[in-house]
């Protein structure tokens, strides 16, 4: 075993995830999240390395929807771990053509996948696949529901920056299209686990009925300045025009003027506040161009951390050390 591998095995110890699939932040216990972060932290410190951890395994990146960073990130992580990574990328694939999901799932499973990474426009599909395949399923985003690996990397970035203990009690303000955002869907579930106080700044069009009941701890602001005042963390979201977000706005111009994060607004946050964005950023719409290159802007750190988190995720999902087998049902 090479030195970096030995180091990683030492970091992991005999720990395993409590779950066999990661389709939602809710699948993970606090210990699971700590384990992922410990491994991600170590992977990141070791830099670009090749590992043999997943040699002999197959990872399907089943992306039924456009993706650049998430797909590249999962693919890179899979390759660095030595897994055979296979990308299935087609918009409106068989699912759209009317093939039932269990056929899609069982087809991939019949190819003896170890991990199926799935990105889909349909909410709930990763969960559905997870129930009906032997492979471990990792969601790379489902509809307007969740994007758990993004939630993990966002949280990891914050833990890395502030420290887990110091993070407790800090205020995070999320700005923009929360109603169509699966990134928000995962962040809103992981934020309380980090002890964050969560604010949302959004026009009323993005705050749909039931939001307050579903996420009662979130404080909603229709005024972005109020929401930013005293925030420790600012996260801007992309306006999801392709998911109908455009209907909720008169123009991007007006959104930018009323909710875009510019220097003046960002200055309302705490002096040492960090700025995050899941990408892709529409510069000067959600985030003012000048802010993109600041030290406190973590957008590229998020991307970098994405690989580390996915290295951890794939390793932990594809290589259990406790011999436990996932149970699933054919349909």
């Amino acid at each position: 075993m090479l030195e970096p591998e030995k180091h990683m095995v030492g970091v992991r110890g005999d720990r395993n995830l409590s779950c066999f699939d990661v389709c939602s932040i809710d699948d993970l216990t606090d210990d699971d999240i700590a384990l992922i972060f410990d491994c991600a932290h170590a992977f990141k410190k070791l830099g670009n390395q090749k590992y043999a951890f997943l040699r002999g395994t197959t990872t399907f990146n089943a992306f039924f929807e456009d993706s650049t960073r998430t797909r590249a990130s999962f693919e890179l992580a899979g390759k660095q771990l030595g897994s055979e990574t296979i990308n299935i990328m087609s918009k409106g694939t068989s699912i759209g053509k009317g093939e039932t999901l269990h056929d899609t799932a069982q087809t991939l499973d019949a190819m003896h996948a170890n991990v199926i990474v799935v990105r889909t426009e349909f909410s709930g599909i990763p969960q559905f696949l997870a129930k009906h395949v032997q492979a471990a399923v990792a969601s790379a985003g489902d509809g307007m529901h969740e994007h758990p690996s993004q939630g993990l990397l966002d949280a990891f970035t914050l833990v890395e920056h502030f420290g887990a203990r110091q993070l407790k009690g800090k205020t995070a303000t999320v700005i923009g299209d929360i109603s169509h955002s699966r990134v928000f869907g995962s962040f809103v579930r992981i934020a309380p686990r980090l002890g964050l106080k969560l604010r949302v700044a959004a026009p009323r069009t993005f705050v749909r009925n039931g939001f307050a009941e579903a996420f009662p701890s979130v404080k909603i602001f229709l005024n972005v300045e109020e929401a930013l005042t005293g925030a420790d963390i600012v996260m801007a979201l992309r306006v999801q025009e392709e998911r109908g977000g455009g209907k909720c706005l008169p123009t991007l111009r007006e959104f930018s003027k009323t909710f875009g994060v510019n220097e003046r607004r960002f200055a309302l946050a705490k002096k040492d506040a960090v700025l995050m964005h899941p990408g892709p950023v529409m510069r000067d719409i959600e985030v003012h161009n000048m802010l993109m290159t600041r030290d406190r802007t973590k957008i590229l750190t998020q991307v970098e951390n994405g690989v580390a988190v996915r290295l951890a995720l794939l390793w932990l999902l594809a290589r259990r050390t406790d011999g436990r087998k996932k149970s699933f049902t054919h349909i």
């Binding site: 709930g124 489902d142 509809g143 307007m144 529901h145 699966r182 009925n209 939001f211 579903a214 109908g244």
Partner: peptide
């Protein structure tokens, strides 16, 4: 239009577009 279930707590949790 586009709403596949009642718009409320559950549609929020499931990430599905609701109809009010």
């Amino acid at each position: 239009h586009g709403g596949v279930m009642h718009e409320g707590k559950v549609s929020q949790l499931l990430g599905l577009q609701g109809q009010s």
